[in-house]
Simulated assay, not measured.
Amino acid sequence: MNPRQHTSSRSARWHDMAEHIVRQGSASVTELAESFGVSVMTVHRDLDELERQGMVRKVRGGATAQASNVWESNIAYRLKAHTAEKDAIARLVAGLIEPGSSVMLDDSTTALAVARHLGELAPLTVVTNFLEAIRLLAGTPDIRLIALGGEYHASHDSFLGLGCVDAVESVSTDVVVVSTSAISETYAFHQEQEIVLVKRAMLRSGARRILAVDGSKLARVALHRVAPLDDFDIVVVDAGAPAELLQRLRDHHANVQVAQL
């Protein structure tokens, strides 16, 4: 095998291994070695590279695509997780948006689900830093699309950093829709400070602030506080969330709306 073929084979294995871990949520080193017909040492080297690319996170004995309180899951995993819940939330959120208004969306997959419904509400002005949402809405009739720039992060498929914060602060929208990785009864949280800074800027730039989170994120915390829940006008959660957690959330927030699945 010549060097070019070796590189191609290795790249293909990295791609397939990442997809395998994303599909299952996690995998052990032994399982990966057997599945891909390589040595345990090769798997460790492959996982080092996939972690460097932001695709997976190495843990003891294997790797995971799932979030922890200090690490957010890769965009490929998040796009496949809780899709029915996110769509239910998105339908409810879309019903809160008036045609002719301006809407800012963060780089969450829940906000992307909302973006899929915005063509029905046109004319609208949509502002976002999420490249997948930009691709989705580009060319949609009567959607004025404003893309927020900054440094591109492949693991989130979005633009972040100081350039993005500056871009956010240069506009003001009628509505801002954000999601976070975790919420307690009183705070919304996220693992990564660059994303926290952008979300905070977005909240300052929206006249009405909507927090959209699926039930898996309730009663959890992550490394960084994004904002108190009192900073949001509306919190939207899906009906699949445990009733006890929904009640605890209602006890601490005046406007919790539940999306039916």
Score class of each variant (00 low, 15 high):
Q193T: 08
A63S: 12
Q66W: 13
G100H: 10
A90R: 02
L137Y: 05
H82A: 10
H190V: 03
Q257D: 05
I146L: 15
G139M: 06
G95Q: 06
V221C: 10
P228Q: 05
A259Y: 08
T186N: 12
A18Y: 02
S11G: 02
R144K: 15
Q53I: 03
V114G: 00
N74Y: 03
H224C: 13
L32P: 09
G240Y: 02
A115Y: 01
Q260A: 03
V168A: 06
A90E: 09
G206D: 08
T140Y: 00
E169H: 14
G163E: 10
V175C: 02
E31R: 12
H156Y: 08
V213K: 01
S26Y: 03
A33Y: 06
F159Y: 15
M1I: 09
D142G: 07
E169N: 15
V258L: 04
M202N: 11
T180Q: 00
V56M: 05
A154Y: 14
A241H: 13
H156G: 00
T186Q: 13
E72I: 14
N74T: 04
E49M: 11
G240T: 15
W14T: 00
P228K: 00
I234V: 14
D106M: 04
V126F: 04
A113F: 05
D16G: 03
E194P: 00
V237Y: 12
T109S: 11
S28C: 10
G61L: 07
H44D: 12
A219G: 12
T125E: 10
V235Q: 08
G215H: 09
V256L: 02
V171N: 01
S73H: 10
S216Q: 11
S216D: 09
V178H: 00
V126D: 05
A90N: 06
L211Q: 01
S108F: 08
Q66S: 13
L137Q: 08
E132T: 04
L137R: 11
L148F: 02
D142L: 14
I146F: 12
G119N: 06
L136E: 00
G25M: 02
I146A: 06
A133W: 01
A207S: 12
F232M: 01
